[in-house]
Design a protein around this nucleic acid. Structure first.
Lengths: 114, 114
DNA sequence: GGCATGTATTCCTTGACAGGCATATAACTG
DNA sequence: CAGTTATATGCCTGTCAAGGAATACATGCC
């Protein structure tokens, strides 16, 4: 349920952009709208979806509504991801754990296919 | 390939169910269809989306197509999530971190039991 | 009170899927 | 070869969500 709402909320690129914006700092609606190139009503609608998914929360500041990230759902996503993280750890092992970061001196590189 | 395809693919609950199934072990289409209560054509279409998002890969076994998870996109998701993970770590700190766990990732902290 | 600012909500239209069905393709069996 | 199993694809339809425009709501200021 809330899990589904979370995925649905993050499925939209504009909403991911909003979330990324709010990662830097809380912002009022107008600022988000301009930064994302969205209309004000459109921004409000996206924010509503994010709010109902629990991803953001609002602080009333006079007429302004300042939105900020709520870290809660991030934990949910992280938990969902955990089993798969284990998967790619195994996978790295199986391939010789020589991905494109930090590794630079394997004696012989067996050239994984594809 | 795109980030968007990945999120779109995971936005569907049936596809998340398929991914969860494939986490246990690779499976042929028919088995996935039955396990998820989906029709065979529907399952094939979902698998196509997952394939194009890079989340699964196919192994041809006679007439069977055995699908397996591809760990690549998981890394992408994990990278996307990383900044937010930092956010909720900060959040826990701010609260006095007397919650459950705030494990960072030294060489051996393999996610106790999720 | 009236007006300006900032945000939310409603209505409408359009486009993107998901699901069901029939059918096409591929590979094994005899 | 024909028949059978396993999967993919094409078409159709209903549903749902995103975007735009106009408007309602809320708050501060004079």
């Amino acid at each position: 349920m809330s899990d589904a709402a979370l995925w649905t909320a993050l499925a939209d690129p504009h909403r991911r952009a909003i979330v990324a914006l709010l990662l830097e700092r809380p912002r009022p609606v107008g600022e988000i709208a301009e930064a994302c190139g969205l209309s004000q009503p459109g921004t409000s609608k996206h924010l509503k979806v994010l709010r109902e998914a629990g991803l953001v929360r609002v602080r009333h500041d006079a007429q302004r509504r300042v939105y900020a990230l709520d870290p809660g759902p991030i934990i949910t996503l992280d938990a969902w991801l955990a089993p798969y993280r284990k998967l790619w750890n195994d996978s790295l092992d199986a391939l010789g754990r020589r991905l494109d970061e930090t590794a630079s001196d394997p004696p012989d590189t067996p050239l994984p296919k594809d």
